[in-house]
Nucleic acid binder design. Structure first.
Lengths: 251, 251
DNA sequence: CGACCCTTTGAGGGCCGTCAAAGGGGGTGG
DNA sequence: CCACCCCCTTTGACGGCCCTCAAAGGGTCG
């Protein structure tokens, strides 16, 4: 089995690698069987490709199984705002269920594997497995919290604070998924353009601020890996002292 | 019956003034009875007071019945970001169900009337009325879309564009609720400080930009009423051409 | 080895923030 | 009924953060 094969979802949801993590709530066998029945395919999307095209109604729901992605919106003249980043376990495409046009796009940052559910399955979930319906709402509320936090960052923090915030937050989210190595490093597939688009900054200013923080010794980004060298200083700068995260549901 | 009394929720949900509006989806009698049973009180919150205190776990869920409110977060040094505004029919407090501390506050902009549901009722909704559970998710996804839109505004639009966006968007939301008078005016209870906090601008710059748009004849704010004098120009400035809104659920 | 993308750095300017202070307007109390 | 007060609005001056323009340096892949 290659490393690549490990990134693919197994045939049986019971063997799901994500479900073994303590950061996800356990599921009953009945729920697991139901989820597996809803899963109609496990598509792969390579880095830079669209998972959901902007302004096109999304036909399906997904759980991101492996890899990174992001949600974004663009204005007519090309200005782009990244709304939030998506990591394994995140649920994708819920908005498309309730509006005619997908109001945002979703793009893969790395090669990704997805578990796809038919779009007509959402109502099934609520009607046949109430607990899973509750979990869908939970995931939706969680994503909204991410966007809330990003809005505060973009609206009220200066460039250095924004970058500190982004680095801590992404690092913490990766950590709870067990993606941090022994040296405290995580995969970091964002380009500086992505960071700029997420933080409402220009590419140039993003670079200058990022370098300043790096030169002071707060963090290190090298060969697409991020390490936080002074997490406490970063927290202080960002004014972000997050509590330990509770387990969340997984569909 | 005074005008004030009309702003209060009636005893029976079947008599709900909001439910007569075409912008809300119809409910079955069974669902209506269930909702009424969940409603445990109809508190009133006066302008400027907290509906949900920041950093305090919210014990309850609400539907905003009348009046305006807003969700916000503040940083340690006092900087405040308004996340979105709440109008009649909006659902309040869902986030508090899934996190220990309410990560944001909710404050009344005007005198408000609320329908309050016990916090232990959320699971009841999903388990006993699946369709209503589905609707809760719908409302959650709708609110996320508001925040998404605001994040784009704050991250990628300049001051004039931000203000144009806010004015159009709030006006449209009020219009579908039937709150627009014959002169095309709606109640507009925001101070310029609220606008600044919502748009990530300073109070001073908000004032200057607002006055510039007003002097050019795009809109008019007088005695707490907003009128759009040139909606098309505002749309063009904001790059915001929204489709007609679909009916949404109401709890 | 060249092409392309991403990163890095400098220069200059503009948008927007901060500071300061005066001008309404509505509510309260005398 | 008037006067005062407080909050909100308005305007000017000035400075700084961040944007735009420009161009060179590195890394990777065909």
């Amino acid at each position: 089995m290659t490393a690549d094969a490990a990134a693919q979802p197994p045939k049986a949801c019971a063997d799901c690698r994500l479900r073994q993590l303590t950061c996800f709530l356990p599921t009953t066998p009945a729920e697991l069987a139901f989820i597996q029945q809803c899963r109609e395919s496990t598509p792969r999307v390579r880095a830079g490709r669209a998972i959901i095209a902007e302004h096109r109604a999304s036909p399906r729901l997904f759980t991101l199984y492996s890899g990174w992605a992001f949600r974004y919106k663009t204005l007519a003249d090309g200005r782009r705002q990244i709304l939030n980043f998506l990591l394994p376990g995140d649920f994708i495409g819920l908005q498309g269920e309730f509006t005619d046009d997908a109001t945002h796009g979703v793009e893969a940052l790395t090669h990704t594997h997805l578990c796809a559910f038919g779009h007509d399955r959402l109502w099934d979930i609520f009607s046949r497995q109430a607990r899973l319906g509750y979990n869908v709402t939970w995931l939706c509320a969680s994503e909204e919290q991410l966007v809330d936090e990003n809005l505060v960052t973009v609206g009220r923090r200066n460039a250095a604070e924004r970058i500190a915030m982004l680095l801590i937050h992404l690092w913490r989210r990766a950590e709870r998924l067990g993606l941090v190595d022994e040296q405290g490093g995580v995969e970091f597939p964002l380009t500086q353009q992505h960071i700029a688009d997420a933080l409402g900054l220009s590419l140039v200013h993003t670079n200058k601020t990022l370098r300043k923080l790096e030169r002071v010794g707060l963090h290190e980004i090298k060969s697409a890996r991020l390490r936080l060298l002074d997490p406490l200083a970063l927290q202080r700068i960002a004014d972000y002292y997050a509590k330990p995260m509770r387990p969340v549901p997984l569909l």
